[in-house]
Design a protein around this nucleic acid. Structure first.
Lengths: 110, 110
DNA sequence: TATCTTTGCAACCATTTGGTAGCGTAATGA
DNA sequence: TCATTACGCTACCAAATGGTTGCAAAGATA
């Protein structure tokens, strides 16, 4: 029973196709059709992923006539970076504590 | 029509509860019951997440009597880091190209 | 030994996901 | 003007997800 649809960067990068789309858009903005050509999946399938990515605010749309150009909002990706940073800090803290324990054992042995 | 169950680090961190579990385990190994106390969800729900995380090889189990201690395989997290690194490189490349264009425009104006 | 505790596992359920097919609309181009 | 193209949107489908309840196994404890 999920309360609400979770739409965050972490969900954005959960799907391999979406990760590929992000990578392609990191190289430059593209239209759905141009993107779809890079995949086996249909235009609609890619379009759905683009929708998800837009909801996650990883992408922004720019209408140009009948074409829509999708741009990457690279700042959103920093959330992942930030989370990883916190994770690494927790890890290093743990190893610091382990160091403490080892140091104490040493001094006790003296 | 999904071909196979996707089980990778990216799917592991897609769920907020799983991200929290990873954070807790970054501080030190724990049993399912101890973990479940940190959440509103039931032991079984947490256990399911642990199962997913184990399948993703983000966690390893260690049986100690009737208790099971879950440990973090922090090396798996490097996959995320690696992906982010690639992403950033692509981004910077794009900006380099933009720089090229700007430089050329400058020289043309001369 | 009998009982409690920790845990995995299977069954089940509602919702979400990733995908397809088809329709409507608006812009482009002959 | 008429055909084509690019796209969003809806409806639909099978599989996956996140969650629950209940049960069984095996270790701890009295």
């Amino acid at each position: 029973m999920r309360m609400e649809t979770r739409r965050d960067v972490f969900q954005a990068i959960a799907d391999p196709t979406r990760r590929a789309i992000i990578m392609l858009l990191a190289a430059g903005s593209m239209t759905p059709n141009a993107l779809a050509e890079h995949f086996n999946s249909s235009r609609q399938a890619v379009s759905k992923h683009l929708q998800v990515l837009t909801e996650c605010e990883v992408l922004t749309q720019e209408q140009k006539g009948r074409e829509i150009h999708y741009h990457l909002n690279s700042t959103k990706m920093k959330e992942i970076e930030h989370w990883l940073e916190q994770f690494k800090q927790l890890l290093s803290k743990r190893f610091d504590q382990l160091d403490d324990v080892l140091t104490k054992l040493k001094t006790n042995k003296k």
